[in-house]
Amino acid sequence: MSAAPAILLGTLALATAAAVFQLKHAVRERERELALTRQAIAEERARIRTLRADIAWLARVERIGAHARELGLEPMRTERMIRIGDLPDALQLELAGRTLLVELQDGVAIELRFKPLPAPPSLGSPRP
């Protein structure tokens, strides 16, 4: 009778020791994984920084400018700009930018937009 609690306690102690040992190793494993993941993140970040620097280098004006000239592109000129108020259909454009909120009978709210009329012949028809 007196030996039973001792055996029970001894078994418990051994089981706890084994659990602690297991836990210790699990923690070490997690720490190693964490360190590796951090290392991998740092490596990835470094790689991303290098790639961003590469993109910025490739997009420098000397290089892009040369391509633009080959394609016949040129800086936009002020003569190409026109005030919206000077357009013959300025009102239509203004209305097209507006929205009208309407609540239907069933309580659903919808948004109505103005659709501009087709461009008059004086503005020229769209290119084929």
């Binding site: 951090r38 290392q39 970040r45 920084r49 961003r52 910025a56």
Partner: peptide, 25 residues
């Protein structure tokens, strides 16, 4: 104590986000 190198200098960008200066390993 992450393996990332000690604090980097901040990247410098233009007002539209173009990269002007950065650190690479």
């Amino acid at each position: 104590s992450s393996p990332e190198p000690e604090r980097r200098r901040p990247d410098l960008l233009d007002r539209r986000g173009a990269l002007l200066a950065t650190d690479i390993l």
